[in-house]
Design a protein around this nucleic acid. Structure first.
Ligand code: MN
Ligand code: MN
Ligand code: ZN
Ligand code: ZN
Lengths: 145, 145
DNA sequence: TTAGAAATTGAAATACATTTTCAAAAACTA
DNA sequence: TAGTTTTTGAAAATGTATTTCAATTTCTAA
């Protein structure tokens, strides 16, 4: 819930010549509070529950700003919509997605990051981000078949 | 354009208790002919060009069958819609996506596949497929900044 | 502090990919 | 070949995301 993070966000917004509104701050706060993976609907409902009048449009409008600022990133699309996660204080990781129960498991790993960095050099790409999703059956769902 | 592949597909369809229609066959043929990454719109337009009356609905309905049969897979979503690729006779590979010019480069590599298989063991997952997308700037777009 | 320019908001309209509905047509089975 | 079942194209419906617009808010600089 770090105050300094919000100050940082304010600076980021002002630097872009935009206005720092309570809506933008509330949305970021709510997202930080979830911590986990989230989607627009979840944030909207959580805000609503605490009597906030913030519209979905505002959430949709704020998300690209949060991505640009490096606060969150899109992690995957499922059931027709995007899922995001907070990137602040998070190690890079990959996602195991069970195709049956839809459970998403995070796996942090340096072996992988190392391999990607090697690739970056080999290919002369400037690496910005990556997504690795592994689809399969979790232990539970393997048993149930 | 292997005939045996179409026979195989017919078998697959019949095995599922479905009917083998010219639409389904034409769609698979067209997809095999593209070879490269494709989306629904592209297949629809190509079919239209050769005077086929096949509707988009049929393409949308056929794609899940082709995925289930292991003929194609979804590789990424961009600009709001899905992109697929033929998996037959293709090595597993990853995708470099340039965030500026949107170019998608395929890179085959066993090091990644090997690492993923290791995870599979470590995690007791049954691996079905994976997506690795690396976002960055290609050499050209790095220069232009 | 306050006026006024510029950006932002919520609500509704719109865009657009995908799915569903439905009646007509085609595929299959016996 | 008749009868059952599935599939088809067209149109309607769905659901996510974006855009429009008038009202409101932020912010700057008198
Ligand atoms: Mn994650
Ligand atoms: Mn590919
Ligand atoms: Zn599972
Ligand atoms: Zn590029």
């Amino acid at each position: 819930m770090s105050d300094s993070l919000l100050k940082d966000f304010k600076k980021f917004i002002k630097n872009k010549g935009l206005k720092y509104t309570p809506e933008r701050e509330e949305i970021l706060k709510e997202i930080l509070e979830v911590g986990d993976h989230f989607d627009v609907e979840a944030i909207y409902l959580r805000l609503k529950e605490r009597k906030s009048k913030i519209s979905k449009a505002s959430i949709y409008r704020t998300i690209p700003l949060l991505i640009e600022g490096g606060y969150i990133q899109e992690v995957y699309k499922q059931e027709g919509h995007s899922h995001y996660e907070v990137t602040i204080n998070k190690q890079p990781h990959l996602h195991f997605i069970c195709v049956k129960c839809k459970k998403v498991e995070e796996v942090g790993d340096e072996r992988f990051l190392h391999l990607i960095k090697e690739y970056e050099k080999e290919r002369n790409y400037k690496l910005l981000s990556y997504h690795l999703e592994i689809f399969g059956l979790c232990l539970n769902c393997q048993r149930e078949i």
